[in-house]
Amino acid sequence: MTTTTIAAHSEQAVRPQVHKRKRPRSWRPLRRGIIIPALIIALWQTLSSTGSISETLYSSPWNIFNEYIDLTRTGELPHHLRISVVRAAFGFLLGGSLGLLTGLFVGMSKRFEEHVNPTVQMLRTVPLLAITPLFIMWFGFGELSKVLLISLGAFFPLYVNTFLGVRNVDRKLFEVARVLEFSQLRQLARLVLPASLPNVLLGIRLSLSTSWLCLVVAELLGAESGVGYMIQDARSFVQTDVVFVGITIFAIVGKLSDSIVRVLEQRLLRWQDSFKG
């Protein structure tokens, strides 16, 4: 009698809790994440509406929003954005895949590491801005110099993190691979890659943001199109609204690409048994 009551009671006690917790959970991070930006926007709008700050210099959220609509209607924004995204994507794919491959090789072979790693680490410390003039002299103002500059930036984060990931693979699992007679290729595909995936994905996220950063550098220094050019052009006419549109579109697309990788992370790393906060 007592046991059944307890059992029934605990069943009821547990079930609704599970339901209550699960639903809002997917939205909660979004709700929490939006608080700070919303506060900033509200404050900004109030300050410029009341005339406490100059609208020409600081613009206002409402003006920026209207500018978004105008620029989209004229097709200017989609045009520049498309060009920028294509540049960043090419640069990221080229530099990122090279970084991933080199990181894998260097991680797998001590000899390869001793040959290659010192040079890469040396190059990594050179500020990208210092190399930019060289790239422009060698490859001109065209697309090539921009894509190469972006790929150079995207190379290092993926390289460093892949290298680290491979070196973090549990040595004991390599022994298992030997006992199970994995071929070299299988060992790479079935052991090294999945085991270093957490680091590789982190590298991808960092590489993506670096690509975005390098894109701006490339476009500010000389371009006839792209979001960076749009910002540069608007600056010379003191069109603060347009400058803000450029800045915010960078932030939005940057966050979007990061979110895609994070979703990927959640899917691919479901097996991980780590602290989730």
Binding site: R178, P194, A195
Partner: peptide
């Protein structure tokens, strides 16, 4: 001469692949 599948080995720890 080398490890092979006809010599199955069970380690002290299970050594499973955590992602599988």
């Amino acid at each position: 001469e080398r490890p092979s599948q006809d010599k199955g080995f069970i380690f002290q720890e299970h050594r499973l692949f955590p992602w599988l």
